[in-house]
Computed example of a mutant assay.
Amino acid sequence: MSSSWKRVAAQVGAQISAATGVPFAAETAAAVRGGCINEAYRIEGGGRRFFIKLNRVGSLAMFEAEAAGLREILDSCTLRVPAPVCWGESPCGSWLVLEYLEMACASGDAAALGRGLAAMHRTVAREFGWARDNTIGGTPQPNRPTSAWAVFWREQRLAHQLQLAWRNGHEASLQARGEQLLERLDAFFAGTEPVASLLHGDLWSGNHGYDVAGRPLLFDPAVYYGDRETDLAMTELFGGFPATFYAAYREAYPLDQGYAVRKILYNLYHVLNHLNLFGGGYLQQARRMMEQLLAETRG
């Protein structure tokens, strides 16, 4: 077992026992690869398995928000996500324990994923945002409920990331382009009225999979209510999903005119977030996207 897991094993075991009503003590812990924010393990004991994420002291709020987001998706009765079991913190670190879902290879029923996501997006709220803030990767993500989508996207998504980029020392020209874009943001929503759909919020290819029967699974959400196109846009950002996924989604819930441009606006948020998380390798991409968007508003 890893040293990180050993330091919290007894407390986590006691908490799982209390949460499930069945005594649990981990007999093995195997590291699970794939994340860059948390350590992750599959723990087993008494014929039961759980998935656990570990992070430093002070990360409990992040895990509480993730658990709430998973519960929000579970309550939509659409796509399957791991059910949260318990979460906590000690002087040795913070943790989130989830249902362990056995995953198969990367391929599965992509059309079912498209239909399921469309159904999830039909779960709507009265305002954009969410009842609590959360994180996107390791970055704080504000979700203050807002009645106007353009205002929400301007203030709590793009402006927020631009402020972080400024604090992180990224060039002033990026900020100048960003300010121009924020001033012209309303132009991208002319003729469309987004509804506040339940969003995964961080839907790149690494945050979905399939179980052993080929049924789709989602995990690692950054949940809020917003324009459904933001989820679709991110699926195209890092490699894309299968064509059958997009065909099934569009058949179940056709996209509005103008998506081809708005997806650049929506993915800019994630590129700026990667710039803030991982450094200057994303600076040129962010600049190009801003120039493309500004050119659209000059037309």
Rank of each mutant, 00 (worst) to 15 (best):
M1E: 04
M1R: 06
S2I: 10
S2T: 09
W5E: 05
V8I: 12
A9I: 07
Q11F: 13
Q11R: 12
A14H: 09
Q15Y: 09
I16T: 06
I16K: 06
S17W: 01
T20P: 02
A26Q: 04
A29H: 04
G34W: 15
G34P: 04
A40E: 11
A40D: 07
A40P: 02
R42L: 02
E44S: 13
G46M: 02
G46H: 03
G47Q: 01
G47W: 04
G47F: 11
R48A: 04
K53E: 05
L54K: 08
N55P: 04
S59C: 09
A61E: 04
F63K: 15
A65G: 07
T78E: 04
L79K: 12
L79W: 06
A83S: 11
P84Y: 01
P84L: 09
C86E: 05
C86T: 14
W87G: 13
G88P: 04
L96G: 06
V97W: 09
Y100C: 15
D109A: 14
A112G: 08
A112P: 08
R115D: 10
L117Y: 07
L117D: 04
A119K: 08
A119I: 08
M120K: 04
H121S: 00
T123F: 07
R126H: 12
G129S: 05
W130Q: 05
R132D: 08
I136V: 11
G137Q: 09
P140M: 02
Q141H: 06
N143G: 07
T146S: 10
S147Q: 12
A148Y: 15
A150K: 09
R154C: 15
R154A: 13
E155I: 03
Q156P: 01
Q156K: 06
Q156Y: 02
Q156D: 06
L158W: 00
Q161I: 10
R167V: 00
G169E: 03
G169L: 01
H170Y: 11
H170Q: 10
E171Q: 13
E171C: 14
Q175S: 13
R177Q: 10
E179L: 14
Q180W: 12
L182N: 05
L185D: 03
A187K: 07
F189C: 00
E193C: 12
V195Y: 07
H200Q: 05
G201C: 01
W204S: 05
S205Y: 03
H208D: 14
D211C: 05
D220S: 10
P221T: 11
Y224M: 10
Y224K: 11
Y225R: 12
G226T: 04
D227E: 08
R228W: 15
R228Y: 15
E229K: 02
L232M: 13
L232K: 01
M234Y: 02
E236H: 08
G239I: 04
G239V: 00
G240V: 02
P242V: 09
A243G: 15
L255P: 09
Q257Y: 14
G258E: 03
Y259V: 02
A260I: 07
A260T: 12
L265K: 01
N267K: 05
L268G: 06
L268Y: 03
L268R: 11
V271F: 07
N273M: 03
L275P: 00
L275F: 07
F278S: 00
G279L: 00
G279E: 00
G281D: 02
Y282E: 01
L283Q: 08
Q284H: 13
Q284L: 12
L294Y: 15
